[in-house]
Amino acid sequence: MTVETMKQIIRPYGDTTGDAMIQVSFTLPVPHGPRADLAALQLAGKMGLDPASVVHSKAMGPDFTFFIVYGKATHLIDYAGIEVPEGREFELLTPAQVNAAVKARLGRRLVVVGACIGTDAHTVGIDAILNVKGFAGEKGLEYYREIEVHNLGAQVAVGDLVARAKAVDADAVLVSQVVTQKSAHIHNTKQMAAAFAEAYPTSLTGGLGRPLLIVGGPRFDTVTPSDLGVDRIFGKGTTPGEVASYLVHALVRE
């Protein structure tokens, strides 16, 4: 057996190697009782839990039951077959390094426009990245001397965002989308990307030709930047320093 074909089989760990124990909780739309418990066990079996036991079931009103189930997972994972995901494609810089890079290589302040678009009124994300106050102990982009920030706030119409980006000659546009009901975050972002493509005809002829488009939000984990027509997606927990470092990486390389 060569190294390439060597497998590393793993199972979930409860308290003993190989016990394969996991726990799940869910609701079924049936009245509480022994029959409901059997339904829960059948579901657990179909999910690959065998044996499984219902350790808790509780009526939630007359028509619903909540379950907590423990069971042994019958599925195996070959850890050796799982590739290490690519790390950050850019180097993490301090604010001083970001400022120095922009000053030395761009020779002017880097202009960033940020907004929550569409009906989304949750500015927590964009504010965490842009406001001086920042996030996770890191100051926001407004704190960076060499970055000029225009935070347009909540519920900005896409047309207004494009107009503002043009007016201030933005290098990058940051958009935050928190509300995910009916996939609003995906629709809004695609609409935004399309509007920029249309407003900057140069963007079709290769090169960037338009501001760098960055979208952030907790629920973009199922899509890629190219699905949305943007340059980069940032997920939950992103800090201002990561965004600033990415801006340098993408916009002010030698």
Binding site: S25, F26, K58, M60, F64, F66, Q181, P218
Partner: peptide, 13 residues
Amino acid sequence: EGIHTPWLSDRDL
């Protein structure tokens, strides 16, 4: 909170 709009079970718990 911050994951999804509350489920029936979230509210009950």
